[in-house]
Design a protein around this nucleic acid. Sequence first.
DNA 1: CTGGATCCAGAGGGATACTG
DNA 2: CAGTATCCCTCTGGATCCAG
Lengths: 118, 118
Amino acid sequence: MTTSENTTSLCSGNVCPCQEKCPLSAALEIIGGKWKIPILCSLYNDGPTRYNALRKKIKGVTNTMLASSLKELEADGLILRTQYNEMPLRVEYELTKNTNRLIPILGSLSAWGKEIKN
Amino acid sequence: MTTSENTTSLCSGNVCPCQEKCPLSAALEIIGGKWKIPILCSLYNDGPTRYNALRKKIKGVTNTMLASSLKELEADGLILRTQYNEMPLRVEYELTKNTNRLIPILGSLSAWGKEIKN
DNA sequence: CTGGATCCAGAGGGATACTG
DNA sequence: CAGTATCCCTCTGGATCCAG
C-alpha cells in the first residue's frame, strides 16, 4: 500500500514539489543572498577572522550587509561569534561544525558549476 | 614556488572570497530564485512533463514565473524543451544530463538542511 | 572597532488580461 | 495549449551617517 521507499527524494519524501518548505529550499535560503558564500569561503580559507578583516577581504561589502549577513549566519548556526572584551573591542567569527559538514557539498556544487560552463 | 595543491577550495582556487564570479556562486545563481528547485524536483520525480501539468503540480506558480524560470533553466542547459506540433500544441520539459549530475548534490544539501534543523 | 539606523533604488516576483 | 504583455508591489541590497 505504501509507496516503495524513495531514498533519493530531494524534498520531504512524499509531497514534491516542495509545497511546504522542503529542507532543500530551506538550505538554499540559508546560504542564499549576495554575501553568505563569500563570508563562508573567507572563514573557511582563513579561519577565525575579525570583523574589519572580513570587511577588507570581501570586496565590495558594506557594513550594513556584512553585519546583517553575519547575524543571520550566526542565528542559523553556521558561524560562531566570539567577543573579547579588550580595548579596543575584538570580535572574531569562525565556522561551526554544521558548516564544516556543508563545505564538501559546496565543493561538489562548485565543481558542477565549473563543468557546466563548457 | 607554486602554492601546494588546494583541492578543497570552493572558489577559483587562488582568490577567495569569490572576488570574480566563482563557480560556486554561479551554480547557486542558476538554481536560485523561488521556483527553480520546485521545477527541477517535479521533473525529477515525474519525468517529462507538459507546461500546464507543471503549472498544476507546482502550487502557487504563475504563468509569468513558470515561463521565465523554464526559459532560464533551458538557457542554462538544465532542462530540455521539446515541442510537438500537434493540435493542440504540446510542449514537454525534462531534465538534462547536466542536471542528473546535480541531483545527488542537491540530495546532500537537502540532507544537510534536514540535520541542522535540530 | 563593531556595528545600528535611515533612506533609497533596482531587481525579483505576483495579478490580470491577452495572443499565436 | 503554451505562453506574453503590462502593471504593480515587496524586499533585497547599497549609501550614508551615527552610536556603544
